[in-house]
Design a protein around this nucleic acid. Structure first.
Length: 526
RNA sequence: GGCACGGUGGCCAAGUGGUAAGGCAGAGCUCUGCAAAAGCUCUAUUCGCCGGUUCGAUUCCGGCCCGUGCCUCCA
């Protein structure tokens, strides 16, 4: 078994073989920065993050690039409405995008390219397309001659003849008059008065701004090279954006330009009756990332996304996220339980003896992840081995996160049934803890404790903050809670249940949930 | 009109040519001073409808019905 992914270009699942055996280069179409990202974008970007994490788990080094489209009519319009310039407006949206990504535990990309930083390269590419007879100039505007590209439509599975003019209801009559063919698209166009404009030094098209499609083709090849492994974007980008990108890039870079095209499906907002509704500003139903985070942790949100396969459209309403969150909470309780069982263990016991049992289950070329020997150990070793097998098989099958989450549930059930709540077997507990958190990390749920799993904790987006969070004030509060629980234990011992329940209620009112376990009380902030 | 993708238990959601993962919700039991948590057991003779291929189809093929997306700048 090896990783297989669904390639939109071939409409098949294919073995994933990057151009370089150890390095994967990914370009993702990012945000047009006219307004902040919303849950729909979140679904897409979280998928890319899981994909990247899975590749890293698999031992690849990933170079991922995402772009900001910061030249766009809507940016200009929104900037004007807000009384700022286009670039200032873009700057603000980019800042909120980065904050939102952190809030969702999306790992940093190697590069975030901005269209305005690549204008010179775009001008060069446009000229090259003109020179190759792929583009023509009309009144200072450069248009791509779609009919000159024989493979046009191949990616999205259509033919030029099957396109219906105006079917999207968004065509512009005056633009149509300039085009030789209705599907021709803009590579470069003159700016209107007051809009940002760049000089090209070309006689026929002396100034203006680039079209949308050329931005991505140029940014991707400028950063990742003439050929790279994965090009992705939301399914809405499939046509015309990615089709046009291929039409631009292949005459310049060669065919095939990109190894794998991947397109996550959309998130679909549902109303109270369960009917799909359009998320739009005018309806006032756009859900932002801060709003989402008010109700759910990043881990819960990531889990919710993972339960549905990335190529299926995902229904969203608060009810559905809450149900998924409840499922995740059970998983988290297993992590918390293991953590608490290990809390008292001295540092010298937190080293896992290595044993090669798992390696023997697979061929040497499948020796993944690198830490596997430390996971398959002790009392829960067999359950862990089964879990890892299922998890890998699920993920390898075109990023089957639903299968991976199901494997996690079964594993967690086995750990509880195996008595983790009452166990003092530190090496076994630690191995299970690391096994579980390592795989949850792949799905974007970042739970490792820095003391118990330092190598993984540093991989986490919120790692540094999490480590510091334990100090100072919170530690003091924890001390108070522990003190109250001591009093409660004394009361329980004396069978003064009125008093013990009173303390529990008191803590509950303060947002601290108390549970009694065979090994004493356990609390968590709810 | 064209192209694409879907229709699986109350809800969400995997899946395979050989007899339906997992989660949520629900019921019972165990444990517990109680609660919570956890565990165990139960909950689709059935996978939109109709044909066909097959020893056998939810899974392959054909038709139909329903839904969604796209067909020039929405992740």
């Amino acid at each position: 078994m090896a990783l297989n992914v669904y390639n939109t270009r071939t409409k098949r699942k294919e073995p994933f073989v990057p151009a370089h055996p150890k390095v994967v280069r990914i370009y993702t179409c990012g945000l047009t920065v006219y307004s902040a990202m919303h849950i729909g974008h979140a679904r897409t970007y979280c998928f890319w993050d899981v994909f990247r994490r899975w590749l890293e788990y698999r031992g690849f080094h990933v170079i991922s690039v995402i772009n900001y489209t910061d030249i766009d009519d809507r940016i200009i319009a929104n900037a004007a409405a807000g009384g700022t310039g286009m670039l200032d407006h873009a700057e603000q949206v980019i800042a909120s995008f980065r904050a939102d990504c952190r809030a969702l535990a999306i790992k940093d990309y190697a590069a975030y390219t901005r269209a305005t930083d690549f204008v010179a390269e775009q001008i060069e590419a446009v000229q090259a397309l003109i020179d190759k007879g792929k583009a023509y100039v009309v009144d200072g505007e450069v248009l791509y001659d779609v009919r000159s590209f024989e493979r046009y439509g191949e990616l999205s599975g259509r033919t030029i003849d099957s396109l219906q003019e105006g079917a999207s209801g968004r065509t512009d009559a005056t633009e149509r008059q300039r085009k030789r063919f209705f599907a021709d698209f803009t590579l470069w166009k003159p700016s209107k008065a007051g809009e940002p404009s760049w000089d090209t030094g070309k006689e026929a098209w002396p100034s203006g701004r680039p079209g949308w499609h050329i931005e991505c083709s140029v940014m991707s090849t400028s950063t990742l090279g003439q050929h790279f492994d994965v090009h992705g974007g939301g399914i809405d980008n499939l046509f015309p954006h990615h089709e046009n990108e291929i039409a631009q890039a292949e005459p310049l870079c060669g065919h095939p330009w990109v190894g794998y095209w991947m397109h996550p499906a959309h998130l679909q907002l549902l109303d109270e009756d369960g009917k799909p509704i359009k998320m739009s500003k005018s309806l006032g139903n756009v859900i932002s990332i801060p709003e989402l985070r008010e109700h759910h942790s990043a881990d819960q949100i990531r889990w919710f996304f993972g339960v549905t396969h990335y190529r299926s459209s995902l229904a969203f309403n608060w009810q559905l996220v809450s149900e998924a969150s409840k499922g995740f909470d059970k998983v988290k309780r297993a992590v918390t339980t293991l953590e608490q069982r290990l809390e008292q263990a001295p540092d010298e016991d937190l080293k896992i003896p290595v044993q090669g049992s798992y390696a023997s289950l697979r061929g040497a070329d499948q020796a993944i992840p690198r830490e596997r020997e430390s996971f398959v150990y002790g009392q829960y070793g067999e359950a862990s081995a089964r879990f890892i097998e299922r998890f890998i098989a699920g993920m390898d099958d075109d990023m089957g996160t639903p299968k991976a989450t199901a494997a996690v549930f079964d594993y967690v059930g086995e750990l509880f049934a195996g008595g983790i709540e009452a166990s003092d077997d530190v090496p076994s507990l630690l191995a299970a803890y690391r096994c579980l958190t390592r795989h949850l990390w792949v799905l974007g749920a970042e739970l490792p404790n820095a003391r118990l799993y330092p190598e993984l904790a540093v991989e986490c987006v919120g790692g540094a903050e999490r480590d510091n969070a334990g100090g100072g004030r919170e530690a003091a509060l924890a001390g108070v809670i522990d003190k109250l629980l001591e009093l409660r234990q004394e009361a329980r011992k004396a069978k003064d249940f009125a008093k013990s329940d009173q303390i529990r209620d008191l803590l509950k009112d303060a947002g601290v949930a108390v549970e009694d376990t065979p090994k004493g009380p356990r609390w968590e902030v709810s």
